[in-house]
Design a protein around this nucleic acid. Structure first.
Length: 797
DNA sequence: GCCTTGAAGTTACCG
DNA sequence: ACCGGTAACTTCAAGGCG
């Protein structure tokens, strides 16, 4: 066994355990030569800070703290250190403890002591503390001086090392050859949503990055061997990343409950342990990254109902029309009937292939995000945007010697946001859309907006030393650069640098792809900083910061509009950081220059519409692009809570209007759909309306249709979780709309459907939203004969 | 008691 | 558990009418 050496590894997961009263950090990684290793560091200790009150000397407080712990279990060390708190130099007492569990104990003990202003950074998990303090990068490479340790037979790794000093992150853009395992389970469900205490798992489908596909099946209705096979498969394949779809909310909890009931040890981790519920609602599998791809699907706003097959279809991984689809509620029938089982096998296989395919599309971004914000791969997806931003900020704070503010409960405090212009309604030709690039981040940088540069009105002396926000009057010191300014400048520079580097690579290359995902991750975090600052749950929350940012934003866009008008550009519309103007190449170029000159902000032409149509409403329009594509914004056609048939009709109407300029052709088309509806020729799937259940049933104050439908679904034995979408149909009969809403899975007879509702409340309103502006009324759409319209008057096409 | 009206509740969008 | 601005739907209760 070699004595010491240097190991280069890619960080996959981090965990810790107290062994013999010593906390032990475990870094699970993959080496440059593709070995799975764990690096152990027993030298790190948990700590937190005690901030003295203004009038109390740190030395004096240190004495008091020492007196307080006298006779109790001692802390490891207490010392005075210099840090910054909201930019101001402070002396704080760093309290280092023996084990992580001591931190909350001493925090409580010290917090209420006389002379203590606050206790800081006592709520940072031990392994996160380690990652931050050594600036480790999850999904990034490190070098570490190590001494090999004897292998622990409980750990599924090729080698165990003791770190002789903390690992150092290194620049190295290669990806390790990761073993990725996609899995999906099917459960027996004759009574609606399956219950682990009652219903067996019948199939577990698996796919690996080597292309191996495998179906593990139950012995009819006995799944005990199936579960054991699954554990054995995971152990022998030994994946680095395990991906599933909705696995944190369904597959893992189900498998865990089921194993418990059947007495199977679900020891799938690299430390021989079971998946354990952890932060942000994810399941932690020690030594591996357990990634739920659903978390990333949530950011794909184009997909309205985020089922596995819809996401796979959207990403081009597994076209919906070329795969086996089984209605979830009918799975048990395919199991019961031996002749149908092979269809179910096919279905399960396609599910896991879809999952694997989505993983290929999503993981590169997930890894870049993890690396940027410093959360492990399995946590980064589960963490909300606010927490992703916050971890990034905490890393930066550490680098800058800034103390991390505590999270405190605050009441919600509203403030004014952006401006939306009243659109000039109707059809316009040749319209350019100009956008400010990263408007809020750039405003925060140029005005130095930050909690630590904010100065309350009574302390404002010489106004020339401050940037004063319009409308709201908040003042921010011009110097020195505040926390947000430093962080955002770094992020924007980083992104510029990445984009520069991308030019050196072939867009088809792996390097290019990695860099592109990296710049995307940087952009996402930079753009979320403003919203984060205005979030009452944020550690670096400051209402005035968010409020001043939007105030300068409003001023900027208003002045920009004036400038456009001065240059003779007609402004059609604008929202927050964009303006729509007539596209006159020369004038637009001049205008871009003038904006740069005036605000030191970049405004870029985003696109030019050949034709664009506005209703009188804000945030709803439709544009025809030079390549013939159609952009629909805000209208029913892009909303998930309208029936597919209504959306389809509106989209086609828009296309006819924008491409052919013929309202009458559109009318004919709408009539044909109305006829088809009445004739029952429209598939029921196009009539389903999808709406989210956003809270518990008791919390609803009105009898809304989707809630009534959801209750009916639950009554029929289905489980529904908050945040889930319910698909319902409107059925013929008396009473309120809500009375007529039934979950589609419970509607057996198409005759029950209230087609008149779909005509009057779905298709016609969606069509008329557009056609009304061409003088078309609902009567015209419903009756058969042509009448003169305003459009004819105006001599339209 | 019936109908109209407007506020309130609700969702999902835009940037 | 990132923000505010916005449209549009349905429900519900108040008010007017008779």
């Amino acid at each position: 066994m070699p004595s010491t050496g240097t190991v280069r590894f890619w960080l996959l997961d981090a965990s810790y355990e107290v062994v013999g009263k010593i906390p032990e950090i475990r870094l699970w990684g993959v080496t440059d030569d593709d070995l799975r290793i764990v690096v152990i560091d027993r030298s790190f200790r948990p700590y937190f800070y005690v901030l003295p009150q203004d009038d109390v000397s740190p030395q004096e407080l240190l004495k008091r703290l020492n007196a307080e712990i006298h006779g109790k279990r001692p802390v490891l060390n207490m010392e005075i250190v210099e840090k910054k708190y909201f930019g101001k130099p402070v002396k704080v007492i760093k309290v280092t403890c023996l084990i992580p569990a001591d931190v909350p104990k001493y925090r409580e003990l010290f917090r209420t002591l006389k002379g203590v202003e606050d206790v800081l950074e006592a709520d940072v998990r031990f392994y996160m503390r380690y990652i931050i303090d050594h600036q480790l990068r999850p999904c990034g490479w490190h070098e570490v001086k190590v001494r090999p340790l004897p292998k622990n037979k409980n750990w599924h790794v090729d080698a165990v090392y003791e770190a002789l000093e903390p690992p150092k992150p290194i620049e190295y853009d290669r990806l390790p050859r990761l073993r990725i395992l996609a899995f999906d389970i099917e459960c027996y469900n004759p009574k609606g949503t399956p219950k682990p205490e009652r219903d067996p798992v019948i199939i577990i489908s698996l796919m690996t990055s080597e292309g191996e596909k495998k179906l593990l099946t139950a012995n009819d209705y006995n799944d005990i061997l199936l579960l054991r096979e699954f554990v054995d498969f995971v152990k022998s394949y030994d994946p680095d990343v395990i991906i599933g779809y909705n696995s944190n909310r369904f597959d893992w909890p189900y498998l865990i409950e089921r194993s418990k009931k059947l007495g199977v040890r679900l020891a799938v981790s690299r430390a021989n342990s079971s998946p354990a519920p952890s932060v942000y609602g994810h399941y932690s599998i020690v030594g591996r990254a357990n990634v739920d791809l659903y978390d990333f699907a949530e950011d794909m706003y184009e997909i309205k109902v985020k089922t596995l097959e819809n996401v796979a279809d959207y990403l081009g991984v597994m076209p919906k029309d070329k795969r086996v689809l089984i209605d979830g509620i009918e799975i048990y029938k395919y199991w019961d009937d031996p002749n149908l089982r092979k269809t179910l096998f096919e279905y399960a296989l396609q599910d896991v292939m879809s999952t694997y395919g989505i993983g290929e599309k999503v993981l590169p971004f997930a890894m870049q995000l993890a690396s940027l914000v410093g959360l492990t791969l399995d946590q980064v997806g589960a963490a909300s945007v606010g927490f992703r931003v916050e971890w990034y900020l905490m890393r930066e704070a550490y680098l800058q010697g800034e103390l991390v503010p505590n999270r405190i409960e605050r009441p919600y405090a509203p403030y004014k946001g952006a401006i939306v212009l009243e659109p000039k309604k109707g059809v316009h030709e040749n319209i350019a859309v100009l956008d400010f690039s990263s408007m809020y981040p750039n405003i925060m940088i140029s005005k130095n907006i930050s909690p630590d540069t904010y100065v309350p009105p009574e302390e404002v002396d010489d106004p020339s030393k401050y940037n004063i926000a319009p409308e709201v009057g908040h003042a921010f010191r011009k110097e020195p650069p505040g926390f947000y300014k430093r962080v955002l400048s770094k992020l924007l520079n980083f992104r510029r640098q990445i984009k520069e580097e991308m030019k050196r690579y072939d867009p088809q290359s792996v390097e290019y792809r990695i860099l592109d995902e990296r710049q995307r991750a940087v952009k996402v975090i930079a753009n979320a900083c403003y919203g984060y600052a205005g979030w009452v749950g944020a550690r670096w929350y400051k209402r005035e910061v968010a409020e001043a940012t939007t105030a300068w934003g409003r001023e900027t866009i208003k002045e920009t509009i004036k400038l456009a008008k001065v240059l003779g550009l007609k402004v059609i519309y604008g929202d927050t950081d964009s303006i729509f103007v007539e596209y006159d190449k020369e004038k637009v170029e001049k205008f871009i220059e003038a904006v740069k000159e005036r605000f030191n902000l970049e405004i870029k032409p985003d696109k030019v519409y050949v034709r664009v149509f506005f209703t009188e409403a804000k945030k709803r329009y439709c544009g025809l692009l030079p390549d013939g594509r159609i952009d629909v914004v805000g209208l029913e056609a892009v909303r998930g809570d309208w029936a597919e048939i209504a959306k389809e009709v509106q989209e086609r109407v828009l296309e006819i209007i924008l491409k052919e300029g013929s309202p009458w052709k559109a009318v004919e088309y709408v009539r044909s759909i109305v006829d088809a509806l009445r004739a029952g020729k429209v598939p029921i799937s196009k009539l389903i309306i999808w709406k989210s259940i956003t809270k518990g049933f008791e919390e609803y104050e009105v009898r809304a249709a989707h809630v009534v439908a959801a209750k009916r679904l639950v009554k029929a034995g289905y489980k529904l979780e908050i945040g889930e979408k319910i698909g319902y149909l409107i059925i013929k009969g008396p009473g309120k709309l809500a009375d007529k809403a039934w979950p589609y899975v419970l509607v057996k007879d198409p005759e029950q459907i209230d087609y008149e509702y779909y005509i009057e409340r779905q298709v016609l309103p969606a069509a008329l939203r557009v056609l009304r502006y061409f003088g078309i009324s609902d009567n015209i759409l419903l009756s058969g004969h042509k009448q003169a319209t305003l459009f004819d008057f105006l001599g339209g096409a």
